[in-house]
Amino acid sequence: MATTATTKAGRFGGRQRSRTYSLERLERRAGLLFALPALAGFVLFILIPMVCVLLLSLYKVDLMTYTFEFKQFQYYDKMLHDADFWKSVRNTLEYMLIYVPLTLALGIGMALILNSRMRARGLVRTFFIVPYITTYVATLVVWNVFLHPTEGPVNTLLMSLGVDNPPQYMVDTHWALPMLALIGAWKDVGYHCILFLAALQGVSRDYYEAADIDGANRFQRFRQITLPLISPTSFYLLLITIIGGLQAFYQMALLTKGGPAFSTTTLTYHIYRSAFEFYNFSYASAVGMFLFVLTLALIAINWFAQKKWVFYQ
């Protein structure tokens, strides 16, 4: 009897398992089907081009006759011995050194203002988001006028204050790159502000009330409660700001064309110039691969570092 019961139970359990198994399979299939459009997009528009860029960096290519000559790592060797490449790496890092902290700091600052009880909050919020939703070209035209060396409002103001030789922003090697970083930060800060604001609004008031009872001042509340609780958002924004900084291109292409004297040629602009101005697609692809590795490395560093400062509730 016991044996029969065990057998029945075994049979029953087996049916259960096979039913569960087939359900799992169905769910997996459905999941795959749902993921398929995104997967196809990823393969078509990211994976294949990436493989092509990798191959392009190893071959001398003539797309007119479709002839390919394997060059091993010759273009990488050229890249590593190219002074312009290292200058573009330095320019990219300098750009990021200004752009990343400035965008994050302004983003969180603006979000804190919007999160407080203030009048016309909706109007102010609209003002903050306008640069982000405006097209880059229009934004840059405005900045170009704004920073005009003789007739722009910035220098007109400086001259009226007694500054005899105000900066010639876009043709001055010392000013051009910081100004482009400033423009980049101004453009992107609205997006950061919105995400920070959403994160701030998700922080429970209870924590602040408890801190008030403990006698915490405003800075302590910000340092000990706000920052840790919005750290997942901060981490996400840090990553996309780093990626955005590494890919900065529009300002250089439209305002300075990488000049003056190569001072605003970042890695992306160096890639563009090598490929489309000097026809050197293979070399440009090698620099592209370097940029990809650099991006991965910076993301990896931050990914591991997050364990020390990001708190998931």
Partner: peptide
């Protein structure tokens, strides 16, 4: 995918050269 991308990137046109 890899094979097709290799072919797409590295193919040699018979009519060219």
């Amino acid at each position: 995918v890899l094979a097709s991308s290799l072919a797409a990137c590295g193919g040699k046109n018979d009519n060219g050269g």
